[in-house]
Design a protein around this nucleic acid. Sequence first.
DNA 1: GTATTTGCAAATGATTTGCAGTGCT
DNA 2: AGCACTGCAAATCATTTGCAAATAC
Lengths: 134, 134
Amino acid sequence: MNYELLLREHSLKATPQRVGILSLMQTSGHLDVEELFTEIKKQFSTISLATLYKNINAMMEKGLLTEIKIPNQKSKYEIAKAPHIHLLCQECNEFIDLKLDIGCLVDEAAKESHYRLKESSIVLSGVCEKCQAK
Amino acid sequence: MNYELLLREHSLKATPQRVGILSLMQTSGHLDVEELFTEIKKQFSTISLATLYKNINAMMEKGLLTEIKIPNQKSKYEIAKAPHIHLLCQECNEFIDLKLDIGCLVDEAAKESHYRLKESSIVLSGVCEKCQAK
DNA sequence: GTATTTGCAAATGATTTGCAGTGCT
DNA sequence: AGCACTGCAAATCATTTGCAAATAC
């Protein structure tokens, strides 16, 4: 993926720090601020936490990143993409995406409540296959 | 509801501050820390934020309260009850419970991922009926 | 009577802001 | 060149901790 282009398309300057952040997000899928800071420092040893926060916020405002709020955990961030849900393993902390059609749920909720629904935030937690085997 | 009893059943002492917190939660449904502090001070003018936090944490550890993490908002708290989902109006900020069978969604997610699922955190956002009318 | 809880003040942790210097376009 | 971005230090906001006095049971 061309991160420079992606940034410019969202009216953000393509600084190396930002490209680094996006490339980490792409590689790791989901990272919290602290993890992101630890990783990005390997590439930019002098980067400051303030810069990281400013960039996360700027990219969220432009709709390039999404924050995922998770029960009992720090928020994680991901590159914005098609709607999907998240699964958390309460034992090993694995955190994954799952593409799942939630149309039926949303339709049902809309019917019951008369809300016009636009966004969803769904985190299901339990035990992953590997941890079940233990 | 008898909050004294509820507290003792969860091995917590029934202090007036705790009863006040629970009664506010019951009345208002969902409150964040700041809102709760503003309200509880009307009953206990000398209550400290530290006490409020200690109590929220104690009641969460005993499973009496649940924290709801909401995209772009502060966490809210509610008295723990049967699983349900939450709807947020992005215009007027109304925040409501909806009892909805999410079995099909969870089953589908479990089938696809091989997770054994135990908990769910679902917040759908959009526009409530009243705001649509505007 | 004993263990827990309260409320204060201080400590810690997380995030934001101001500003001078630097870099992107 | 001009505006946006970086990095530092300081400020702010949120939450936790330590401790002495008060309270629940």
